[in-house]
């Protein structure tokens, strides 16, 4: 499966944030989107998912224009997303969140046991009462276990303790091995550099740098962009 943005523009009310972004991600690869705060990374995920309507350009799934299709259509087509701020339905229980994620009760343990700080036995706990890190782990685990062809992950490592960041990295790499494509929005540069096959650097809602993991001095070029 291939997700493609062509000259994608989006924003909030009268404030444009994305100014003609073009990029693509395919099943079986990890594309890291990096950039400083406020450059439009989260907005990009929302626009690709259709939660935020595009004000220009196109979103294509396997060449089919889905720009005007609702998020639910994109999910059914094979897209899955985890968000930075609202990872779970906080008012619902952990078990309810898993049911909504499409997991039958018999496989809930597969998701809950994905991280060592196991959430097993907490199916009836309200998701909003989990710590921020636990909510992030659960959302990431849901996305990874779903084995969706394409997963958009917005800052999945934020709020996680270092050992769980490493484990998260291994799970994301494992998802790629199993054929999922991952668009990884990540501030944790070391994690992004360890995982990504390709990099896209954003600045002020535009793509300013692209490269492959094997390109000469790619990490220096990215670091330079982020420091300036």
């Amino acid at each position: 499966m291939r997700l493609e943005a062509r000259d994608l523009c989006a924003g909030y009310d009268a404030v444009p944030v994305l100014h003609g972004i073009s990029l693509a991600v395919e099943s079986g690869e990890i594309v890291a989107i990096v950039g400083r705060n406020g450059v439009g990374k989260t907005t990009l995920v929302k626009a690709l998912m259709g939660v935020l309507p595009a004000t220009g350009g196109q979103v294509l799934l396997d060449g089919v224009d889905v720009t005007r299709r609702p998020p639910s259509h994109r999910v059914r087509a094979g897209l899955r997303a985890t968000y930075q701020e609202r990872a779970l339905f906080r008012e619902l229980t952990v078990g309810d969140n898993l049911r909504l994620g499409g997991f039958a009760p018999s496989v809930h343990h597969q998701v809950l046991d994905k991280f060592p700080d196991s959430l097993s036995g907490r199916g009836t706990q309200r998701a909003g009462t989990l710590s921020g890190g636990e909510q992030k782990m659960l959302a990431a685990a849901c996305a990874i276990v779903s084995a969706a062809p394409l997963i958009l992950m917005d800052e999945p490592s934020e709020g996680l303790q270092p050992s769980n960041v490493d484990l998260l990295g291994r799970h994301i790499a494992s998802a790629r091995e199993h054929g999922s494509g991952v668009l990884l929005i990540e501030q944790h540069l070391a994690l992004a550099e360890r995982l990504a096959d390709r990099f896209v650097v954003l600045e002020k809602g535009e793509v300013v740098e692209e490269g492959h993991a094997g390109d000469d001095h790619i990490h220096d070029r990215i670091a330079k962009r982020l420091v300036i």
Partner: peptide, 12 residues
């Protein structure tokens, strides 16, 4: 609880 998140979970 969260309409946008529900849409993103594939709910119509």
């Amino acid at each position: 609880a969260d309409r946008d998140l529900a849409e993103s979970a594939g709910i119509r």
